[in-house]
């Protein structure tokens, strides 16, 4: 993409050079990339038909990479990514969802104290600390309800529905409904045949 400015953008800013958008995707605003520190070839990769609206935030560290599949929709999800987050096709991510592959700070209190004291006087201030990352993978046709949190290392299978305000701290079997804090399986879904999935136009 030559012009890194979105024509409909309400925020006066440009897309970072590491953002790769399919020409038939829809990113509402460059504001979503305010915290994006990722590097080329890509940090955020958005496939065909996917749309990101509202307060969606891509909070990517320098080595963070995240991919969106086709025909996903998100409105106000926050992605905290220092290594890898993948979202499959046909996913719905509701508002205030947080998906993180890192806690950003060391778990050990003494190491955390050292990291907090070593805060570099950069402008704008960016917190840099070595902390464990565990990639998050979200399958196809996943629907995550509003205000839910997906913790580092979690794999969510195809077709999973995560109930509103859940906290997902362990892997989810495909075609289940999970809910609660921590999220538990509350129902199983019948897995539809891939051949019967609707096909998008074009």
């Amino acid at each position: 993409m030559e012009n890194r400015r979105l024509p409909w953008d309400w925020h006066d800013g440009m897309l970072p050079s590491s953002t790769v958008l399919h020409e038939e995707s829809m990113v509402e605003s460059s504001y979503s990339f305010l915290l994006d520190r990722s590097q080329p070839p890509y940090g955020v990769l958005v496939e065909r038909g996917t749309s990101t609206y509202g307060g969606t935030m891509f909070d990517l560290g320098p080595r963070g990479r995240m991919t969106f599949g086709q025909f996903c929709m998100t409105n106000g999800t926050r992605f905290v990514c220092d290594e890898r987050i993948t979202v499959g096709d046909y996913c719905l991510l509701a508002w205030n969802v947080v998906i993180m592959d890192t806690y950003r700070t060391p778990l050990d209190p003494l190491a955390r104290r050292r990291a907090l004291r070593g805060e570099p006087p950069t402008q704008p201030r960016r917190f840099v600390a070595e902390s464990e990352t565990r990639p998050v993978a979200i399958g196809d046709a996943v629907w995550i309800g509003f205000d839910s949190v997906v913790l580092p290392g979690v794999t969510i299978g195809d077709g999973v529905i995560v109930g509103a305000r859940s906290v997902v701290n362990s892997d989810c079997e495909p075609w289940t409904i999970v809910a609660g804090n921590p999220a538990r399986v509350i129902r199983k879904l019948e897995a539809p045949d891939r051949a019967s999935w609707p096909t998008p136009p074009g």
Binding site: T50, L92, P192
Partner: peptide, 19 residues
């Protein structure tokens, strides 16, 4: 959005800019 998987996939397509 619909709970039923096939209808929900159709919904993601209908909600997309292309749909």
């Amino acid at each position: 959005h619909p709970l039923e998987p096939i209808a929900r996939i159709a919904d993601t397509i209908a909600c997309s800019p292309i749909g």
